[in-house]
Design a protein around this nucleic acid. Structure first.
Lengths: 151, 151
DNA sequence: TATTGTTATACTCTATAACTATA
DNA sequence: TATAGTTATAGAGTATAACAATA
């Protein structure tokens, strides 16, 4: 079996939804001089303190790309680098108070912008949609402390 | 009412889903030296022949950005420009046979890559998810011929 | 030796501004 | 004048390769 109608229709909907969401995120980010990737980093680091390499791997970016990304966010006072006490090669990434405030404001804007779309479903349908989406989703970056590696 | 749980959970799921889908699309595109935007253009032009300005507007890009994008795809023989018979200022964008073949192959790869995720739902759930997504989605770029403008 | 992160370099994506051709 | 498209320019995002520090 290489394809079936239910899968094709679902993928089409997921892809269109993805471009729509990305469009909203891109526009709102741009209004605050933030790229999509920087927006995403803020959302991730909001309640985590990942090391550079883990963050790069989770984002699917080269570590050198992440260096530049964090540079620019750090220059703007949204993120900060910190030494990791356990391994002196490692650099942790953390959010600043300014970054946290900006992130909260952005999330509010995102909710408001998407409200006309999500509002076309009633609360029970919204809940059902979120539940159906759940099994399709990749797990998020785990919160610290990180699990022990396989021996 | 500024927020409710069902909306927040739905937006969280939609945003995570969007990043996941974009990750897959970005990776598959990169394996064929195509950016996310070029991938998207191929998907749109596959069964349409939009003018440059309409395509730029639909993608949310400046017309100058689209010029470069089409340049690069044209140099690779995936897309072509054509004069519009009704208005000599207008340039239409169309897909080549090579572009169509590549697009078909990419779509197949996307389906295969996403199969483990979509396969976590049974066919009835997939259908239901696609149906619940539908009202949330923005309408696609209309197929030619274009509707008459408002007088 | 292997891993973590940064720097140098090059290319794509993107927008702004200035331009040409057509309406 | 207004619209459609291109070109020139500049900044951000991205990967590859070479490097320094630490494990």
């Amino acid at each position: 079996m290489t394809s079936d109608d239910s899968t094709d229709a679902l993928i089409d909907g997921l892809v269109r939804s993805a471009f729509q969401i990305m469009g909203v995120l891109t526009r709102i980010g741009a209004e605050h001089d933030l790229s999509l990737t920087q927006l995403r980093v803020l959302g991730i680091v909001r309640d985590r303190r990942p090391r550079m390499s883990d963050l790069a791997a989770f984002l699917g970016l080269d570590k050198s790309t992440l260096s530049g990304l964090i540079d620019r966010a750090e220059r703007r006072g949204l993120l900060a680098r910190a030494a990791n006490p356990d391994d002196r090669r490692v650099v942790d990434v953390l959010i600043t108070d300014a970054g946290r405030e900006l992130t909260a404001r952005l999330n509010q804007e995102i909710r408001e912008t998407l409200a006309p779309a999500t509002g076309r479903l009633d609360p029970a349908q919204r809940q059902q949609l979120a539940q159906l989406l759940e099994p399709v989703l990749t797990p998020a970056l785990p919160l610290a402390p990180r699990p022990a590696a396989q021996p």
